[in-house]
């Protein structure tokens, strides 16, 4: 799976294009991303969106699996606090991320590449801004092979 480079020219063709996986909730961020499209707002194509019913369903193992499978960055996004379609799913998610992000950092994983956000169904512009910003940040950080390559170490 390769991403297309936005500009023409030999320098652009060899430039690293990050692969970003986004785990988003169906009711807010996914709908918001849909609004981005219907509003014809353009943003960088590096993100692969995975739709889940609610951020409360997002297991921290999903983030690890994305990194292990070669994602250079991960976005996790859902409804703002108090707006969760299932009332409290995002509150549980927030707590989980507060601990998991700390733990990832303690284990030496680059947490600059794992971004959490609240994007509502009305925030089409915010989604585009978020994806563009994260894509630029991860592009600057470079490819993230460290977690993926761990499955090669210790294999006799």
């Amino acid at each position: 799976m390769s991403a297309t480079a936005p500009a023409a020219g030999p320098a652009a063709a060899s430039r690293f294009e990050p692969r970003i996986v986004a785990f988003v909730c169906n009711w807010c961020t996914y709908a918001g991303a849909d609004l981005t499209g219907t509003s014809r707002i353009r943003y960088q194509p590096n993100v692969r969106v995975i739709r889940l019913p609610c951020t409360g369903r997002i297991d921290f193992m999903l983030v690890m699996t994305a990194l292990a499978n070669g994602a250079d960055g991960v976005i996790v996004s859902g409804c703002h606090p108090n707006d969760c379609h299932y009332t409290s799913g995002n509150f549980h998610a927030r707590r989980r991320w507060m601990v998991f992000r700390d733990l990832l950092d303690f284990a030496g994983v680059d947490v600059r590449r794992v971004v959490f956000s609240w994007v509502s169904a009305a925030e089409g512009a915010k989604w585009a801004e978020l994806v563009d910003k994260v894509t630029d940040e991860v592009r600057a950080l470079g490819p993230y092979r460290e977690i993926h390559d761990l499955s090669g170490t210790g294999v006799g």
Partner: peptide, 13 residues
């Protein structure tokens, strides 16, 4: 497996 990923993910989990 006890490769680098199998060990890190187990302990983090």
């Amino acid at each position: 497996a006890s490769h680098g990923l199998g060990t890190l993910e187990y302990h983090l989990m």
